[in-house]
Every structure is written in structure tokens, then in C-alpha cells.
Amino acid sequence: MADASDLKEPGRRDFLYIATGAFGALGVGVAVWPLIDQMNPDASVKALASIEVDISSVGEGESLTVNWRGKPVFIRHRTAEEIQASVDTPLSELKDPQTDAERAEKPEWLIMVGVCTHLGCIPLGEAGEYNGWFCPCHNSAYDTAGRIRKGPAPTNMEIPEYEFLSDTKIKIG
């Protein structure tokens, strides 16, 4: 029998080793995946993914907070001054530049996930230096369009997917 160390060219045996090893690794990966993926959101969690909200009772300068996917969604009927303050802000002053139009489909309705993008606290409304939202956890201040202006939060508050079903009804998610 030939000594394996004499072989210069990769032999049949090397091929078998690598092929077996690769196949084994693949098998372990396939077996482990369900063990990890079971932790991801399950069908019942995903089923609650969208809600419909009646906004007819929310007057100008008022807000409504609804629960969507376990998180608060702020629905704010903005005042003219609030919209103006947001529109007048130059993009160069923003850490995460977005225009007011990108923030609100209809300027008077700001609909966003009320979760601070720093570590997930819920900011307080009509508060803080920019009269928008203020997060008491580590002092992040958002403006009247929910854009981050000051503090440790890295990005603007998230705008969820939503659509106006009518003038007084929206669907979130």
C-alpha cells in the first residue's frame, strides 16, 4: 500500500475526507437551524401584525397612543405651528436627515412608533427642548416630526407602514 505522505497530488482519500466533513457540517447546520429559528416570532405573533384605528376623535393638538405589535404607536394631530417648526428646520441641523414630508404623509397627522431609538423607552409628548418628544431615560430630545435632535439616540423615531383607509380611519402595519 502506498504511504499517504508520499502522495503529492490530492488523492481519493483526501477527497473523501473533505466531502464527508463538508456533508457532516452541513447536516449539523440543518439540525441546529430549527433549534435557533424557533426563537423567532411565531405565527400567532405575526398574525397580530396589522391594526385599524379610528382617528375621528383626535382633535388638533391632541394625540392618541395605540398598541401595535406590543409597542406604542403615537398618532398626533399636529398644530400648524408644529408643522411649521418642522418644515422650517434645515436638514443640515439633523443627525438623521429627513424632510417633514418624508415623516408625515398628511402633514397634520404624524404617525410613528413611540419607541426611543436609543434603548427603547417611551418618550414623553410635547416635551423637551424642541417641544416634540423627550425621552427621560437618557435625555434624548425629538422635534415635532419625531426626528432626533439631541441626546444619545442615533435615529429618528420609526415610521410604521400605514395607510389612510378613509379620512378618519387608518390601518397600521
Binding site: I36, M39, N40, P41, D42, V45, R69, G70, K71, V115
Partner: peptide, 17 residues
Amino acid sequence: RTLLWGGFAVDNPTLNR
């Protein structure tokens, strides 16, 4: 984060695990 939560926020699946 989603994997840790088992959802879109801390909720029952998180408590379970």
C-alpha cells in the same frame, strides 16, 4: 434582537424563554 424577543417587543415569548 427579534430572536431574543420572539416578537416585535419584549412580550410573553420573551418571558417564557
